[in-house]
Simulated assay, not measured.
Amino acid sequence: MPDEDQLGAAVRKLVGQVSHWTPPRWAASAWSGASRAALMHDLVQWMADRCAEAEGRPALPVPRLDNDLALPDQLQVVAADLRRFAPESVQADAAERINALRGAFA
């Protein structure tokens, strides 16, 4: 396996942790009192905002889909854009946030 960057590794681990979750598990409250789905969507939105900054375009809201099972896919898409456009420091910050969320979901 080729060397994987910090962001790619964090995304892969989080997706592996949550990709099999059912809707009730996504709806469960996390440590903050917010649902796990809300926390994941907030992370995806934060990453999308950083990507917009890096691209020099206005930030747009990430759609909050009716099916929480799409959240891992949204994370992967936004992370791919972030890896392409954002500086390494932003990517490292994103990886830290992803790893913190993984811990909160444990």
Rank of each mutant, 00 (worst) to 15 (best):
A59H: 09
P61K: 06
P61C: 11
P61Y: 07
P63C: 10
R64L: 09
L65V: 09
D66M: 06
N67A: 13
N67P: 00
N67Q: 12
D68C: 04
L69M: 05
A70F: 06
A70V: 07
L71G: 01
P72C: 04
Q74W: 00
Q76M: 07
Q76G: 07
V77T: 11
V77F: 02
V77I: 13
V77S: 09
V77E: 11
V78A: 06
A79K: 03
A79M: 04
A79W: 02
A80R: 10
A80T: 14
D81G: 11
L82N: 06
R83Q: 15
R83D: 11
R84G: 05
R84W: 03
A86Y: 10
A86F: 07
A86W: 03
P87I: 04
P87E: 09
E88Q: 14
E88I: 10
S89H: 08
S89F: 05
V90N: 03
Q91N: 14
Q91W: 06
A92E: 14
A92I: 14
A92R: 14
D93S: 13
D93A: 15
D93H: 10
A94F: 03
A94L: 08
A95P: 08
A95K: 06
E96P: 00
E96W: 08
E96I: 03
R97D: 11
I98M: 03
N99D: 14
N99Q: 11
R102A: 04
A104M: 05
